[in-house]
């Protein structure tokens, strides 16, 4: 018998279950793109039959980090840039949990960049949503890793001399097996992409364009957007790495020129997830490790039985 009966529980899930009953006043500004992420998750999770207590949402620091204050799942609001290592470990400890990590562009592509690259490389079976508003919002408008070159802010008053980071291309090179970009202004696509990302067995990276109406007023609101799957102007095979790389590069290039391309960029359904790889080499238990601590009949190995080599 499981100690975690919320996992896989078969019942109708109501969308409202993901809204905290005593809802804290949102700290997001009116018109903030972060509402779009929250909304798409509130739609996607019940549609996938997930109940709030089998989901662990792990966030970093920044406006995006407040996501799990308003999404009523199990939540872990961690520290700046560190949502991924916490999320990965929770998934290894209990692979049956649905683990979603989230943070901003500064959080994920800047301070947490090392974790992002290695999580993608290892292909952990988690969903990683990056609220990309091309700015540091909560600290009041400093230049971020995705801010366009020339972007002026209080910390880069003459305009940024740095070329923005390429989130999609970097993720592809690092090894992510599902990569998509969506935008808060495109709720239907966002919901579908979030659903696919959650269902994907492996590291699913969603670069979510979330306009910042307060600190990035000069930037576009990511409209009009183009869905590369819907548009006749674009065609690529999402399973083809080379084609994906090409269109990702174009997408990143044109964003700062005012063209907002979104959609699925790369999907690799063949690659085993990290826990499958780890299991294959004999370093992952068959049963979720967390279950064992609640099993009164579990047998625990003792160091006393390891002493032969020391005698």
């Amino acid at each position: 018998m499981s100690a975690f009966n919320a996992i896989g529980e078969e019942r109708e899930i109501d969308r409202d279950e993901f809204t905290p009953g005593v809802e804290p006043q949102p700290t997001w500004c009116p018109g903030c793109g972060d509402f779009g992420v929250l909304k798409s998750l509130k739609q996607a999770l019940p549609e996938l039959g997930k109940n709030p207590e089998e989901v662990l949402t792990v966030t970093g620091i920044g406006c995006s980090g407040k996501l799990n204050s308003y999404l009523d799942t199990y939540g872990f609001h961690t520290i700046h840039g560190r949502s991924l290592p916490v999320a990965r470990a929770a998934k290894l400890a209990n692979p049956e949990l649905e683990v979603i990590a989230a943070g901003g562009d500064g959080d994920g592509y800047g301070i947490g960049g090392n974790h992002w690259i290695h999580s993608a490389r290892e292909n952990h079976d988690i969903t990683y949503i990056v609220f990309n508003n091309e700015i540091f919002g909560l600290t009041k408008g400093q230049t971020s890793p995705t801010s366009p070159k020339g972007h002026k802010s209080k910390t880069q008053p003459s305009g940024s001399a740095k070329t923005p980071l390429r989130p999609l291309s970097t993720s592809l090179n690092a090894g992510a097996s599902y990569i998509a970009r969506t935008a808060a202004v495109n709720p239907n696509q966002a919901k579908e992409i979030i659903k696919e990302a959650i269902e994907h067995d492996g590291f699913a990276h969603v670069d979510f364009l979330t306009q910042c109406p307060t600190w990035n007023k000069d930037a576009r609101q990511y409209v009009p957007y183009i869905d590369i799957q819907e548009s006749d102007d674009y065609e690529h095979d999402v399973n083809d790495r080379a084609e994906a790389a090409e269109i990702m590069r174009e997408t990143e290039d044109v964003l700062n020129e005012g063209t907002v391309l979104t959609g699925r960029y790369y999907v690799d359904d063949e690659r085993p997830s990290y826990s499958q790889e780890k299991h294959a080499v004999g370093e992952m238990p068959d049963q979720p490790l967390a279950e064992r601590y609640f099993d009164d009949d579990a047998e625990w190995e003792r160091s006393y039985d390891l002493l032969e080599r020391h005698k």
Partner: peptide, 9 residues
Amino acid sequence: PGQKGGRYL
């Protein structure tokens, strides 16, 4: 996480 009736932040 995963326990029924235990969710918190």
